[in-house]
Simulated assay, not measured.
Amino acid sequence: MMIVPSYSSANFLIISTHYKDPNEEVSIQKESREQRAESREKKKKKKLRRMGGAGGVAVVVVILILSEWTRGGNAAQHVVGGSQGWDVSADLTTWASSHTFKVGDQLEFKYTVGLHSVVELGSESEYKNCNIGNAVTTMNGGKDMVKLSKVGTRYFVCGTPGHCAQGMKLKVNTLAASVASANTTDSSSSSSSSSTLKSYYVYLVLTMLLVVSITINFSSYSK
Rank of each mutant, 00 (worst) to 15 (best):
E41S: 12
W95D: 05
V79M: 03
R36Y: 05
S32K: 12
K147W: 00
L92C: 06
G142N: 11
V62C: 06
E108A: 02
S9W: 07
F12N: 01
M139E: 00
E24P: 00
N134M: 03
N23H: 01
W69M: 11
I63W: 08
K102N: 03
I132G: 13
S27E: 10
T137V: 12
S195V: 01
F101R: 08
Q77K: 05
Q29Y: 10
F109A: 08
R71S: 10
K30A: 14
T160M: 14
E124F: 02
T17R: 15
F218G: 08
V103R: 03
F156H: 02
L209W: 08
D21W: 05
Y127W: 05
M2F: 11
L175Q: 15
W69L: 11
F109H: 07
A58S: 14
S195F: 00
T207S: 15
R71A: 07
P22Y: 07
S32I: 05
N173Y: 06
Q106R: 14
N11A: 05
C130Q: 03
L64C: 06
L107M: 05
V211W: 11
N131T: 06
V88C: 05
S149H: 01
K43R: 15
T112I: 05
S193A: 04
K150F: 00
I28A: 12
E31I: 10
L121R: 12
I132K: 15
Q84G: 02
S83N: 08
S123T: 15
S178L: 05
Y127L: 04
A135W: 07
R40Y: 08
A135Q: 14
A182E: 14
K223W: 01
S125N: 11
S9Q: 14
I216A: 13
F12P: 01
S123M: 03
A90Q: 00
L107S: 00
R40S: 06
L121F: 11
S190F: 00
V202C: 09
S194A: 13
H116C: 06
L204V: 08
M208H: 03
L209T: 10
G82R: 11
K45N: 08
R154A: 11
K110P: 01
V146T: 02
Y127G: 03
V62S: 04
S67Q: 09
E34S: 10
I15F: 15
S192K: 03
M139L: 14
G85Q: 05
S32L: 11
Q84C: 02
R49F: 09
M168C: 13
K171M: 15
G82K: 12
Q77Y: 01
S149C: 00
K150D: 11
Q84D: 15
I3N: 13
R154G: 02
F12G: 02
T160H: 10
N183F: 01
M145T: 11
G114T: 06
T196L: 15
L206Y: 08
K169E: 03
Q77M: 06
G73V: 02
T17S: 10
A90I: 04
N11E: 15
Y111F: 15
A165F: 04
C164H: 07
L204Y: 13
Q35H: 10
E24M: 02
G133I: 02
N140M: 03
Y201P: 01
C164K: 07
A75V: 04
G81H: 09
V179S: 10
H18Y: 01
N23K: 06
S83Y: 04
Q35A: 09
K110H: 11
Y155F: 14
A96V: 12
